[in-house]
Structure formats: C-alpha cells, structure tokens
C-alpha cells in the first residue's frame, strides 16, 4: 500500500489499496479534528464548550476570539507549509528541501521586515507586508530555481548550502534593519521571527485561507508533472513535461503561500520537511493524493505543536516555531545521516 495511489492512477490503485487509502484519509481527518478540538478547549485557561455558548462569557471570549482564530491559522499555515515542502522536495528532487531550508522563508521574512521597519511599525496593512514577503520569497526562490536549472546541474548538497547561505544573508539584513528600528520594532521583530500563531484575528485567517487555497490549487494542477518528476528531470523532459513551466508555477504558488503566512506568523521551520515524509509513507508518493493529505496533516501537526508550545511549559507562551524547530532539527539530522537521504 506504500505505493498505492501514485500517479493518481485510479486504474492502478487496487481494491485493497483504494480502501486503505480511504482509511488513511478518514484517520487523517479524525486526527485533525481531535487535535483541533483539544487545542480549542485546552490551554492556560481551560474552557468548556457549554459555557462558551453563553454570549459575552469569559469562556466565549477565549474560545471564539482567541483560540478559534489561532487554531484555524495553525491549520492553514501548517497545511500551506507542508504542501510547499512537498512540492519543493519533488521539484528539487531533494528530501531535505522545503521553504525554510532553502532560504525562501528567510527571503519572505526579510521582505516583511523591510515593510515593518520602513513602513513605521504595524500600521501598514497586511496586504503590503504580504506583498513584500512574497517578493522576498520569490527572489530567493528564483535564485534557487536558477541554480537547480543550470545546465551543469547542481548537486543537492550544493543546493542546500546555497539555501543556507541565502538564509544567513537574509538574517544579517534583518538584523541590520532591526538595528535601525525603534526598541518597540526590535522586540516585535525578534518575537515575530521565532514564528508564532499568537495574537491574530479572523482577518489574518481569511487572508491566509485565500492564498493557501490558491497556492494549493496551483500545486494540485501540476500533479501529473510532479508525479512524472519522481522519475527524474531527464525522463520527465522526455515525456513532454515543460520543466521550466513547472518550476515557475510551483515557485510562484509556494512564494505566494509562504509570503502570506510569513507576514502573519513569521517563519516557521521544518513543518514542510517532516509532514510530507511521514505522509508519503502513509498514502504513497502520488501528488493527487499526497497534496491534500499534506494540507490536512500539516495543519494538524502545527496545531499540535502550538498546543504543546503554549501548555507544556507552564505559564510561558512559547512560540510554536521553537517547538517545530526543535523537532525538525532532529528529524533533519536523521534524514541526512540515517537514510543517506541527501543523495536521493
């Protein structure tokens, strides 16, 4: 069943494979729902569902004003990160690729920081911060795509090192911006750079929902091409896949999603690395199935990490990015060393 469902070939998903695929999705939806409900009810202040239905009550405010947008944001951001990581791993043929490791998230953060500092704090609207983050993501992504598409071909290790180098450069420029900002801006950027789902309203949720939906639709639209890319670029080109178009399409979709989410949550690492690898084992490598699975699983994973971040250390609201980075760092090492993954 590991291989069931690849290529989206209904004709090749046998009866048992199809049934276990449905089973996997039912399980995924169930897990997501359970995580979401627990995340709604559990926290520093426990709330009860019945009390929260009383308008104006303390529980209602906590649940509907604070927790629900936070959980929704987590679902969307996690999903967007996971599908971005999935498509990057396929396009760059590198199991360690994701927006964070390739520096695309840092590019987005740099773009957003620019607007935050130069635009005079958070008075600037979300669309502008998103746009700047999108531009930053696109710029870094463009460099990465250019490197990977160069005629001589770049080894995957080189690609990752380039991503790290770009990341460091972006971080340095963010520090430069911070040093020019006011005390307030500085602490805000530091907080924001850790990646957090805290303090959001429904406006941010709606904004991210729009871009996640559009980006995911573009990625699903490229499912055949991404499937064929599993057999390598040369074979894919021979099958008639327009590699340049696929790269540009995926890059644009990922940059739009990452730009929108970084503008809201800050850069959150490793969700896009971990989730696709786990789900690939569960539902197979076919993108028609794996993309929606990542959308669900990424959301559940990020909401779970956020739940851990805000409940485990008593009394401190740890940014979720710290938790995902802790888990992700270990996972990254395991992929790099344990599976000889980088040479895939």
């Amino acid at each position: 069943m590991r291989h069931g469902g690849a290529a989206g070939g209904a004709g090749f998903v046998g009866r048992t494979a199809a049934r276990s695929l449905v089973g996997a999705f039912v399980a995924l939806v169930a897990v997501t729902l359970v995580v979401a409900v627990v995340a709604l009810l559990v926290g520093e202040e426990s709330v009860s569902l019945s009390d929260s239905l009383v308008e104006g009550s303390r529980d209602a405010v906590i649940l509907w004003r604070l927790r629900l947008p936070r959980v929704l944001l987590g679902l969307l951001a996690g999903g967007a990160l996971a599908v971005s990581g999935l498509s990057f791993q396929t396009v760059f043929r590198n199991p360690l690729a994701e927006p964070y490791t390739l520096g695309v998230a840092s590019g987005a953060a740099l773009g957003a920081s620019f607007v935050i500092v130069l635009g005079g704090g958070f008075a600037v609207g979300l669309p502008w911060i998103s746009l700047a983050a999108f531009a930053g993501a696109l710029a870094i992504g463009g460099v990465i795509v250019g490197l990977s598409a160069s005629r001589r071909g770049v080894r995957s290790e080189t690609l990752l090192l380039a991503g790290i180098a770009l990341s460091i450069t972006c971080s340095a420029m963010i520090l430069l911006l911070q040093s020019q900002g006011t005390m307030d801006q500085r602490s805000h950027i530091v907080q924001w750079m850790m990646g957090s789902l805290a303090v959001v309203g429904y406006r941010e949720v709606g904004w991210l929902a729009l871009w996640t939906a559009l980006g995911s639709a573009v990625l699903v639209g490229h499912r055949w091409e991404l499937d064929v890319l599993l057999t390598g670029e040369e074979v894919a080109a021979g099958r008639g896949v327009d590699l340049r178009r696929v790269r540009v399409g995926v890059l644009a979709a990922v940059s739009a999603m990452v730009g929108a989410l970084v503008a809201v949550t800050g850069p959150i690492g490793f969700v896009g690395l971990i989730v696709p690898h786990i789900l690939r084992r569960l539902v197979g490598p076919g993108h028609l199935v794996l993309t929606p699975a990542c959308l669900l699983g990424g959301g559940a994973f990020l909401v779970f990490c956020d739940l851990v971040a805000r409940t485990l250390p008593r009394g401190m609201d740890l940014p979720v990015g710290v938790v995902t980075a802790l888990v992700g760092g270990v996972f990254f090492l395991w992929l790099l060393l344990g599976r000889g993954g980088a040479g895939r």
Binding site: H3, A6, A7, G9, G11, F12, R93, W224, E225, D227, V228, L230, T231, G232, E234, V235, G238, R239, G240, V241, R280, G284, P285, G286, G343, R344
Partner: peptide
Amino acid sequence: AYVPQVRPARVPLTVGELVLQGRYP
C-alpha cells in the same frame, strides 16, 4: 519516446504506475 541511461537511483513507483506515466503526453 526516450529512455535515458542515467535515472534516479530510487523511484517510488510500481511498474504499472511507471508505465502509466508514459501516457502523460
């Protein structure tokens, strides 16, 4: 139809899935 010599060491597909991909064009 082109069968290159150098191909990825690991391809996560079954034979049927691989052959179906030949239908992409």
